[in-house]
Amino acid sequence: MRRHLLSAADLSRDDAELVLATAQELRSLADRPIKKLPALRGRTVVNLFFEDSTRTRISFEAAAKRLSADVINFAAKGSSVSKGESLKDTALTLEAMGADAVVCRHWASGAPHRLATAGWSRSCVVNAGDGTHEHPTQALLDAFTLQRHLGTSSGGLDGRRVAIVGDVLHSRVARSNALLLRTLGAEVTLVAPPTLLPYGVESWGVETSYDLDAVLPKTDAVMMLRVQRERMNASYFPTVREYSRRYGLDGRRMAKLAEHAIVMHPGPMVRGMEITADVADSDRSVIVEQVTNGVAVRMAVLYLLLGGSEPAIAGVPEAGGAR
């Protein structure tokens, strides 16, 4: 049996709720004197990062260590990859070293899927962000944060309205969130200029809008996305100033939100571009809490994939899963 978390679409509602419930229990660990559990003792988790990342790598590292796993950090910079080693050879090396799980971040969409399904290794693969494709653990931690603030009496997100705003085109966070939030029963609206909405977005099963001001009053949570200029090879909007005026969240816009609504951002933020400092630091903002929740959610994922004799979530990835 394969054991991977490659896409938020791999998770059924039961799977997702199990991850969130497990994360809920694991979050209380942060309040205990000894922040360690023995579940993954003797297992090896490799953080295989082909792309820069601080929070995701540190978050996975903390999660694995709190579960007593051995952690090996592998960054492409300063490794044999910069000498021209292929993904396959890197995978074979990790396999030979006995990695039980590989947490993979790659600039190429589909790289974790290739790693998981090519038969190069027997480890669990967790997608920690691949190109502009998916970032399932970010979606899980966002869902967890939403549930803590907006959960219905049953703990679900049924009927909750979430707006995802900004550079949807280049955002793996937006795609994973749209998939997962829909699985959990929330209603998602993507808000972006027409140039930054992906081709084929109609098939995502979400609403789209070009008008942030119209969407804000109706939403329970607003998730701001960073404009990913490093992935942009053309001009998608005239000027930064025009972008932030139409799609940035400032204090004036935040005032249009409902009383209970929260402001989220997957980070890293560009203050003054998609979000102003006063919004990011306001008490509506749960951005710092998202980071805390990230560790608990990643612990839950690693525990459910590696903790038992076989994984409790995300079954066999389908052949067409790479998209």
Binding site: A21, E25, L306, G307, G308, S309, E310, P311
Partner: peptide, 12 residues
């Protein structure tokens, strides 16, 4: 723990 599928955690 290792002999069965990963189990859901219960409240502590």
């Amino acid at each position: 723990l290792r002999m069965r599928p990963a189990r859901a955690l219960l409240p502590t």
